[in-house]
């Protein structure tokens, strides 16, 4: 199982035939294992890692620190449930430390993100404060380094 996950995490487009070849297992076995991983939602979906800057698209990310007063008996989950449903919310984490939720908000412009925070996030019941930080440059995202690097040369023949 784990070998399949490692391989797909690296390249989600590998076919079951390619996986079978690389992992040295029968294709049928791989196909069944992948189907099970998908059914169990261990593999949630396959998607591309896109450099939106390069694509020329306008994308702005805001990291919003949110402090909230948890609701009696329901902790942070119910307010988190309300926040995560907004399509503008790219990621949402419960944090330890000086604030409670980290909300990553995605928009076309800074103004759009700022409005979302001001109009949707800040006024929510139980939200005590927000602090908005805008991303200026994405150097590394989900394990991918986004800046160009020079290729390292090796001698063409070595013992």
């Amino acid at each position: 199982m784990e070998d399949i996950l490692f391989a797909l995490e690296e390249d989600g487009r590998l076919t079951t035939a390619q996986l079978a070849e690389r992992l040295g297992r029968p294709e049928k076995e791989i196909a069944e294992a992948v189907a099970k991983l998908e059914a169990d939602k261990v593999i949630r979906r396959y998607r591309a890692v896109i450099d939106w800057d390069k694509a020329g698209a306008e994308r702005v990310f805001g990291f919003i620190e949110v402090r909230i007063s948890p609701q009696r008996g329901r902790g942070f989950d119910s307010i988190a449930a309300r926040i995560m449903e907004f399509p503008e919310v790219h990621s949402l984490y419960l944090m330890s430390g000086t604030y409670d939720l980290m909300v990553v908000v995605q928009g076309k412009t800074m103004r759009e993100v700022a409005y979302f925070v001001a109009e949707r996030l800040a006024p929510m019941d139980n939200v005590l404060s927000t602090a908005t930080h805008f991303v200026l440059r994405r150097y590394k995202v989900d394990g991918d380094i986004m800046v160009e690097r020079t290729e390292n040369k090796r001698l063409p023949v070595t013992p």
């Binding site: 090796r154 001698l155 063409p156 023949v157 070595t158 013992p159």
Partner: peptide
Amino acid sequence: VERMPDAISLAIG
């Protein structure tokens, strides 16, 4: 090989 920069090298140790 050195004179053939576009060669694919499977000769690297």
